[in-house]
């Protein structure tokens, strides 16, 4: 079974600006691909094109043999694409548990059941609690999402994606703005996900130590174009990355 995610010639233009320019890339199960590049390189836009928040001007997104290019974000989510957002994107005034329960509900396909009280679906609540436990948020389950610390909000963001049990996990800077002691929780989570060889994991990340410890492969975006693709050590060492991403002139070693 080969359920690969593929973008072919994926392009989007905003007026005259080409934010993502003919990016062709295939992602395979059991592989964690880190997407790196300087600010404004088009990493998040590339994610938005894959998960459906933006529609491509040109090119296609293929998953599991089906063409997702014309599908809406909810359709792509149901097809198995999960996304954790860079700017925390939660239901601010609902409780932490309710945030996750809604994601579980979405995944279980309970959309239009309006005749029973929600508490009757114990299974959804229990599943949500189990996920909260795995991201170490159980103690905060009854507070409003907006009352969480930034790091906890990031963890909740990841919990929402996990509740969807996707085949593709898309992390957009999962550790951004986290305090040092919070980062390991998220990294452990990602490492655990990696052990499941049927999952495709995409990770946009600025911290090179995180990338180095987790990634099986790195692709580099620069000005919307794919400029490098390969094993972490090769890509990091390549001159184009040293120059384009790390801003270091070739010949000098990266820290």
């Amino acid at each position: 079974m080969t359920s690969t995610l593929e973008t072919s010639n994926l392009t989007i233009r905003f007026g005259g600006h080409v934010a993502v320019n003919k990016v062709s890339c295939t992602f395979r199960p059991g592989e964690l691909t880190a997407i790196v590049g300087p600010n404004g390189a088009g990493k998040t836009t590339y994610f938005n094109l894959i998960s459906g928040q933006l529609r491509a001007s040109e090119g296609r997104v293929l998953f599991d043999g089906t063409d997702l290019t014309k599908q809406s974000a909810p359709q792509r989510t149901r097809a198995g694409l999960g996304r954790a957002f860079q700017l925390t994107n939660l239901f601010p005034n609902l409780s932490v548990a309710e945030n996750v329960r809604l994601a579980v509900q979405a995944h279980r396909g309970v959309h239009y059941d309006m005749l029973r009280p929600w508490m009757v679906r114990r299974d959804l609540i229990e599943r949500a609690d189990a996920i909260l436990d795995s991201v170490a948020l159980s103690s905060r389950r009854d507070v409003a999402a907006t009352a969480l610390s930034h790091g906890d909000q990031r963890k909740l963001e990841v919990a929402l994606m996990m509740a969807l049990e996707p085949k593709v996990f898309m992390f957009d800077e999962p550790t951004a703005g986290m305090s040092v002691d919070e980062v390991p929780v998220v990294l452990d989570l990602i490492s655990k996900l990696k052990q499941d060889s049927s999952k495709i994991i995409l990770l946009v990340e600025h911290k090179m130590d995180v990338v180095r410890s987790l990634a099986d492969r790195i692709i580099v975006l620069h000005n919307g174009q794919l400029v490098a693709d390969g094993k972490p050590e090769e890509v990091i060492a390549s001159p184009i990355v040293q120059e384009a991403y790390l801003g270091i002139a070739p010949g000098r070693s990266a820290a």
């Binding site: 909810p74 239901f91 929402l160």
Partner: peptide, 8 residues
């Protein structure tokens, strides 16, 4: 976010 979770 509701859309991103898969709700139409």
């Amino acid at each position: 976010r509701a859309e991103a979770l898969g709700f139409r």
